[in-house]
Design a protein around this nucleic acid. Structure first.
Lengths: 357, 357
DNA sequence: CTGAAAGCGCTTACAG
DNA sequence: CTGAAAGCGCTTACAG
């Protein structure tokens, strides 16, 4: 049998119970804010907890408790690109690290081209008896409705990839959209000393996707700042809401006919692949191209030289941090950082090998 | 009292013991390769472990075991810059996440300008009864001697920041030095369409610091590749081993007298701050400056525009991964990745705010 | 070479 | 409102 360590019996529920002259069951009740404890006892115990700086042993706690916590992940499916695949992988990586603590993970994937699928999946989450949810609020109105329901049910939620200011989310994990746009401006400026640059927004619903517009604003802000000195850059812009290859090509052709002197392109999302594909065919054009996200097609164009810079948004880390943030809040009961801005990675053909996503 | 869960008693030492007709103490002996078990029993138990895919519950294991594992961190002190401070912070962050598993951490800091201090600290580590060590092999010969001693004592070690090919380290965690140099070449090339670039190595002992030379090689390789097309870039180089402000300024002045047409500088380490300080005083010079590491002074020059790009080497993550790698190997008994190349971050004035180190 | 039993620091029914 | 005791899945002396 084991000798009991009598020298440093200075922490733990047992010591608290001893000092308060109660049983450890009562201490446990206070620690977990369960009812059925007199105010006097509660106060006394809380004071002792303060005094000795009690930190519960999470190992023992999880081992003894058979309670299961269920987390839901509500994000787009990865039908079109592997961008959202990375979020999923990150969430699952975090899950594997903490599942021993009695966590279960469930994925709810919706179609980025179908609002209704978001609603369906969101309802499934609400019906599912979860203890926390990580979501990408891709459809603004629907997402707002969903998180309102979460608030009612006291179901904690974390935003990833883009946020919804004004909601009571536990945290936002993703890029600072405006500053990410500013960085795009700077990158274009490194290559383009003077001339015309085209901002390209490509998305089915550009009203809803205001996160693209926040990038555009950042981009404009940076360029305008530099223009105060030399006024060398002119900005044009185009919104493309029909996302087929052909429609995008036609839109760009139309635009270039109007502005044949466009020397640089800034594409506000991973759709830069479409612009790259288009430019690649016009073999005579040698323009600067900056866009977003390390999806496979984009990386090919980066290596080929068609794309100069990709801005990385760390989707894998977003997924990972979404889950660990829930864990910190729900299981460990710790304070979490409300705004978790990811580093905005600059990727070129020379360092792309070291970035997974 | 609790009801026992009788439905899924399909894993765990108890089940193994039941199937093997032995006690759980014997199962424990086999799991931990302790001796005092007959071959027949051992084989039978191992087979059952295979069969049911036994995964020990690390929570229960660490809770029951009062064993302490001690890790040592052997890195430079942060006297001159906060670069090595970041390594320390990363190691301590990892430590706080896993200390509940019975880990202790001890720091052994040496002076980058004093080989002897490395030797002293290395000896202290060897004398200290550790179960793992993370080290920066800043002094090549001394580090080689140290890790040879580690191998003899079966003390696992992990390299961070720069590696020592040919040693039996558990892992290397840091940048791919050659490719980091190539990236430097690409960044210079973005701004310099043609002209002369100066490679600057600044370090007390440049023979020992061959990691600077591996960056130089990468840089040259990239520039030579682009030169095959247009031959627009000429490379000069200078090694500065006297690292006082004045000596560096004098060396640069001498060099610029010889080559007044130098239009870009590539500094192979965090000493780019010295070059920036120098260039800042020659207010007429508008050259491109690329260097390494997000130390405070460098960041100031980046924001000011004196430095165009900083290449980040993720010191904090290096320290963090060093400790978690040891943990995975020593505590969790898992395979670890031998080469853990960090992403090579490109930092500009616009995205610097989102990188801590 | 092997086993019975106490213990790690908590949580959970159950009884009062 | 409160406590005694069993249990989580392991590890550790100790006795044989």
């Amino acid at each position: 049998m084991k000798k009991k360590n009598t020298t440093q019996e200075l922490s733990g529920v047992k010591e608290i119970a001893r000092r308060a002259n109660v049983s450890i069951a009562t201490v446990d009740r206070v620690i977990h804010n369960r009812k059925g404890v007199s105010d006097a006892t509660r106060d006394k115990i809380n004071q002792i907890i303060e005094e000795i700086g009690f930190q519960p042993n999470i190992l023992a706690s999880r081992l003894a408790s058979k309670k299961i916590n269920r987390f839901a992940v509500l994000i787009p499916n990865a039908r079109e690109t592997d961008y959202w695949e990375a979020h999923r992988k990150g969430a699952e990586r975090a899950y594997h690290e903490i599942k021993q603590y009695g966590i279960q993970l469930e994925l709810f994937l919706f179609d980025l081209n179908d609002k209704q699928s978001f609603k369906t999946q969101a309802t499934a989450v609400l019906d599912g008896a979860f203890h926390g949810v990580v979501l990408a609020p891709s459809f603004v109105d629907e997402a707002r409705e969903f998180v309102t329901a979460c608030e009612l049910r006291k179901l904690p939620f974390v935003f990833i990839n883009s946020d919804m200011p004004g909601t009571k989310g536990l945290a936002y994990i993703g890029p600072h959209l405006f500053k990410s746009g500013r960085l795009g401006g700077q990158l274009v400026r490194f290559g383009l000393k003077q001339g015309k640059v085209l901002i390209v927004n490509i998305s089915k619903e550009i009203d809803a996707y205001h996160h693209l517009l926040r990038k555009e604003e950042g981009f404009r802000a940076y360029i305008e700042e530099t223009n105060r000195k030399d006024n060398h850059i002119q900005i044009e812009k185009i919104d493309i809401t029909n996302t087929t290859d052909k429609a995008i090509a036609d839109a760009l052709t139309g635009c270039l006919k109007q502005h044949p002197d466009i020397a640089a392109f800034f594409v506000t999302n991973s759709r830069v692949r479409n612009v790259a594909k288009y430019l690649d065919r016009q073999s005579d054009i040698q323009s600067i191209l900056v866009g977003y996200d390390l999806i496979a097609e984009n990386v090919d164009f980066l290596k080929k030289g068609t794309i100069d810079f990709l801005i990385g948004q760390k989707p894998e880390e977003q997924g990972y941090a979404g889950i660990t943030t829930l864990f910190q809040h729900v299981i460990a009961g710790k304070e979490v950082t409300k705004e978790q801005y990811m580093p905005i990675d600059i990727i070129t053909s020379e360092n792309v090998a070291f970035y997974k996503n």
